[in-house]
Design a protein around this nucleic acid. Structure first.
Lengths: 345, 345
DNA sequence: GTGAAAGCGCTAACAT
DNA sequence: ATGTTAGCGCTTTCAC
């Protein structure tokens, strides 16, 4: 690269020259190092502002071995849940001077590991949302991603904390709510089989059944989108259940819309619940009874965990106390989409 | 920094040593440079994979003077519109090997300029969504952000293309649709006064009024959120208008919900339109008639423009033909929230 | 308190 | 075709 025309903007050496000091001094001033004489520091600051000097982050990153950036890997930027965690992480990280690099795997889960690795190399750590990734793959991937914070997943990998939502608890609360209204035939319109949060709901439902022997709980295989919810209407009606728990608010909304098209009244004929309490849930007709998940808090907590990891001994990966994983418990939010079953009002 | 314990991971020199070649050769191989002997290249590749070597992006960034990252500045990650452009930019950029750094100004518009500048320093360019930023400030900021692509804003700054949605056209289409149904008293539930897209709608409405002298078009000051829409119900009813154009789908949904609470039927008593066609618009009750904006395409187009700038002479900022700005025209999407006014069915 | 200089990990001229 | 070497812009150790 021998000699080049100097294509770059004003650098630290320009400031040093103008202030009549060394590079080191400028660097110290720019970094708020106190060991610089006040007079000189002032001179440097003036020179810097006259030159409109702003340190080049790349140079600084290389020298310091850190980027002040973390990666957030999500399977779909179009999904309100991941939008929520992204927003939470981004805002919390910004408070601490960190930026967020996004990696959207566009639901192509075979790409997730590669994307995550790439993100990790460019950043100081990664927050991974990979609800569909196989447990084995996750286990293998985790160590290479450290510092790593998992969202709605867990791993045995040392030093990788998780932020978890207790979906099992939430679905039980929903079921109990329906039963409390008088429903005895429930149906869960299931999420994707590979979804870990779906499996948590299933486990919750099993627990529920164990303690409510008189209640029927069917599981209707389905998916996670609007469209999935919409197309589940036939199965739902065929099930004979009167209390319907949709996988999430999206599928609940799709179902609501399909039921409306068929002239089925909610909640008079059928009660429907969602899950997540996305911002739109309160504006459906009728407003959706759902399990509220403070999804932005999940993102903020993920950053808190990450910050913790970052402040730890940066080299040693496996040491110190196990990082605490956090669990958020959904809260039941009763709106208009649930009521006593027909004939029990 | 004299001597350190070598805390870093395996670097290019480890690979070079193992393959018995120079750093330069490893670099060439890693970058797909064809001028390397096939035999040697293979040896390097083997060494690299044995060592699980992955080039350090920071080093590479510094040497090449680019980061393969662009910044996207948005006022609110919680807003479906910006989520859409973010998603579009992110996916399109990923196709070309670029990553996206997000900068969420959290509606604090005084921070936008700073955030954008910071993003620009860390990235190769920035896509700026700043609907509320003053024109003067934008004009002043733009040159320092080059390469810069504006979304729904324009500037005279040389070489900064825009991706624009023709909100004026869209609102006219909506108005025409209502008039076509027989409405003669329209009301626009306005967006924030500082919003540039709101002003475009106003201008569109002025044009509409000019060519439809028999039609009344009121403007009801309001905001841009669910809540704003909800609380606009009183003004809406007081206006006496029968064809209501909400600022966007969010406010339309809020309004729908408030009207529902008051027992006002849509579209029988009142027709309501939204704007944007966010994913939820088709699932409201009734489904929302709206002006569809292909927001993700806007994001993709923003990337296309950015790519263009990036491929241009990297040093000279002001040269070559003016970059083409793109305009997207909303399309009218008629759903169930609009119908002839009472008594005109 | 300040400066000189050695890196951080990589790329790309230039020379061979 | 390959190696040598000079940076990229900054931080930080070490010596003064």
């Amino acid at each position: 690269m021998a000699k080049r025309v100097r294509t770059t903007r004003t650098g630290i050496s320009d400031v040093a020259a103008r202030a009549g000091v060394s590079l080191a001094t400028v660097s110290r001033v720019m970094n708020g190092n106190q060991t610089v004489d006040a007079q000189i520091a002032e001179r440097v600051r003036i020179a810097a502002s006259e030159l409109k000097y702003q340190p080049n982050p790349t140079g600084r990153n290389l020298a310091r071995g850190k980027t002040d950036t973390i990666g957030v890997v999500v399977p779909d930027l179009g999904n309100p849940t991941f939008q929520g965690v992204l927003r939470g992480v981004s805002r919390a990280a910004a408070q601490d001077g960190y930026r967020v690099l996004i990696a959207d795997s566009s639901e192509v889960s075979s790409e997730e590991a590669i994307l995550a690795g790439e993100a990790r190399r460019r950043c100081d750590g990664v927050v991974l949302c990979a609800p569909r990734m196989g447990a084995a793959e996750l286990e293998e991937l985790a160590p290479s991603l450290h510092p790593l914070v998992l969202v709605n997943r867990a791993t045995n990998a040392t030093g990788s904390p998780s932020v978890i939502v207790d979906y099992g608890r939430g679905i039980q609360d929903l079921a109990a709510h329906l039963v409390g209204l008088g429903h005895t035939r429930l149906a869960y319109v299931a999420g994707p089989a590979s979804s870990s949060s779906h499996r948590l709901r299933l486990a919750g439902l099993d627990a529920f059944k164990a303690s409510h022997s008189g209640i029927e709980v069917q599981v209707l295989p389905n998916g996670s989108t609007f469209e999935d919810g919409h197309s589940s209407a036939g199965d739902v009606l065929a099930s004979g259940a009167t209390g319907i728990m949709a996988f999430n608010d999206l599928t609940a909304m799709g179902l609501l819309s399909a039921l409306n098209e068929r002239g089925i009244r909610v909640p008079e004929d059928l009660s429907v619940t969602g899950f997540d309490d996305i911002p739109f849930a309160r504006y459906t007709t009728p407003p959706l009874t759902t399990a509220t998940v403070p999804i932005q808090d999940v993102g903020e907590q993920a950053w808190a965990q990450m910050k913790e990891l970052l402040n730890r001994a940066p080299n040693a990966a496996a040491e110190a106390e196990e990082p605490a994983s956090t669990t958020f418990t959904p809260t039941l939010t009763v709106r208009g989409s649930t009521a006593p079953p027909p004939g029990k009002a």
